[in-house]
């Protein structure tokens, strides 16, 4: 009986060949490597879709009556660097935000400087990575206005938000790309629910990037640095939780 090459045989051979060849040459990837690349797929695909579809789509904004009666705090509930503690003593009168890195005109902004720029108020939903949501009102300056003032250099790709809270020995930081940086709802908020930003929510200034999860909403922001790559920032993963616990840098899902 002659053996015929059937569809089944071809399919089986096609499936079996790669692992057999890799195994024979000793190049079989470890279980850890397979697991790592498998569990990285979701973020890669989600980010690819996000950067192509709905780049300027708006997060839902809510009427005041739909706000959470209580907006809980999470993560660090106070800044703790000497400079921040000192600034709080004076009601943040002498506090400044430093904007530098790959910008043409690095400068410092006082709260008063930020408050004379055009403002935006929005009542949005804050979604924590843990699963809970709270709806609150934020007022601040759209990040795009600040970026126009300092003029990004052509090779700037990300903005890094350095914070005045040190957790587990590391300065909290977060980063976003330029799609989110110039998104109309991305603001540097100095007020929440019509009062100056409370300490528990990041006084005197926090980021609101409304199409991402809570840990991206950096609190106690003291410096914004424009960079070309995230690989030399922190441990290279783009944020505090990304670095120390493996959370996704792209947190839109």
């Amino acid at each position: 009986m002659t053996r015929r090459i059937t569809r089944r045989l071809l399919l089986g051979a096609a499936l079996a060949a790669p692992p057999l060849i890799l195994g024979a040459t000793g190049n079989l990837p470890s279980w850890k490597r397979i697991k790592q690349s498998y569990t990285a797929t979701g973020e890669r695909l989600s980010h690819a879709v996000y950067s192509r579809i709905g780049r300027s789509a708006l997060a839902r904004e809510y009427p005041p009556e739909e706000m959470s009666p209580e907006f809980r705090t999470n993560g660090a509930t106070t800044g703790n660097t000497p400079a921040w503690l000192e600034a709080r003593e004076s009601g943040f009168a002498n506090w400044t935000l430093q904007v530098d890195g790959l910008v043409h005109a690095p400068r410092r902004f006082s709260l008063a400087d930020l408050q004379v720029l055009p403002l935006r108020s929005q009542i949005t939903r804050h979604d924590c990575v843990e699963g809970w949501s709270a709806i609150g009102g934020w007022t601040g300056v759209p990040l795009s206005h600040v970026l126009e003032a300092v003029q990004l250099q052509a090779d700037a790709r990300y903005l890094v938000f350095w914070c005045s809270d040190v957790m587990r020995g590391f300065q909290y930081y977060e980063s976003i790309d330029l799609i989110d940086a110039f998104h109309p709802q991305t603001i540097l908020a100095y007020a929440m629910n019509r009062v100056p930003l409370p300490v528990g929510h990041g006084a005197p200034l926090r980021l609101r990037a409304e199409r991402q999860l809570g840990y991206k909403q950096a609190k106690f922001v003291e410096r914004i640095e424009a960079v070309a790559s995230l690989s030399s920032v922190g441990f290279g993963n783009g944020g505090f939780w990304e670095d120390i616990a493996g959370y996704e840098w792209y947190a839109g899902i």
């Binding site: 959470s68 009666p69 907006f71 809980r72 843990e130 809970w132 949501s133 709806i135």
Partner: peptide, 19 residues
């Protein structure tokens, strides 16, 4: 496991520990 991070369920738009 994701549920374990916040093992509470709500109805509506928002919902956190005080709700």
């Amino acid at each position: 496991m994701i549920f374990n991070a916040h093992p509470r369920l709500y109805w509506g738009s928002y919902g956190a520990n005080a709700d």
